[in-house]
Design a protein around this nucleic acid. Structure first.
Lengths: 108, 108
DNA sequence: TTATCATATGAATACATGTTCACATAATAA
DNA sequence: TTATTATGTGAACATGTATTCATATGATAA
């Protein structure tokens, strides 16, 4: 084992909080339903009923998943009367998706 | 509901296989142990024992996680005598990480 | 050959997670 | 007010997953 190299790498390791947050962010993207939600939100902000109709998933399930996405700051919401419109919270998400897609499409 | 918009968005939706593969890829990144493995592999290719020592995780656990990463083509391996050296399989992974980090560090 | 080292793997356990169901809010209409 | 619409939420169930343990494989050395 290359002890010196390992010690050097160890110094450069990220803080635990960063690791945790990053893994939780990827984790929340690691679900087909949430991926589909984000895909359509890339096109347009949508309310719960529209997402439910588009993806053929119950209002409740959509709502639960939107909460998960919101907890990790991946989507934001805007109230308009009874409806709540959801959209992506920033442009990094589009970049993340495009990088992920590049990787996936290369290996198919 | 904006029926016409929804129909239009529906047309642009990705195929199921792409959604599945992408979500599985993000999912495999959604674990602190695997994130740490990838972080150190960004610096240098490492063998199982080195990863185990560096991250203070059993050989077996490391080996299981490396398999998960390899199944999704995130890492590749190279045998040298008794040892097996692992490294990242392509440069997209570094970009993915950097985009993820940007998002995470912005919200901390 | 046998012994040792490095890694891989299957089973089992414990924990995490997605969906459904029932119900609770919140906003508007009647 | 009550009724209706849109969304949110807690509990429960089922499924998925990470780690440990024991064991297996593969490579090298003696």
């Amino acid at each position: 084992m290359r002890i010196k190299l390992l010690a050097d790498i160890k110094k450069g390791m990220k803080r635990r909080i960063v690791i945790e947050k990053l893994s939780r962010t990827f984790s929340v993207l690691g679900d087909a339903t949430r991926i589909r939600i984000i895909f359509v939100l890339l096109r347009e902000e949508l309310c719960v009923a529209e997402l439910s109709s588009l993806l053929q998933i119950s209002h409740s399930a959509i709502s639960h998943q939107l909460r998960a996405l919101k907890d990790l700051d991946l989507v934001k919401s805007r109230k308009e009367g009874k409806k709540v419109y959801y959209s992506l919270s920033d442009r990094h998400i589009e970049n993340l998706f495009n990088e992920g897609l590049k990787h996936v499409l290369e290996k198919i």
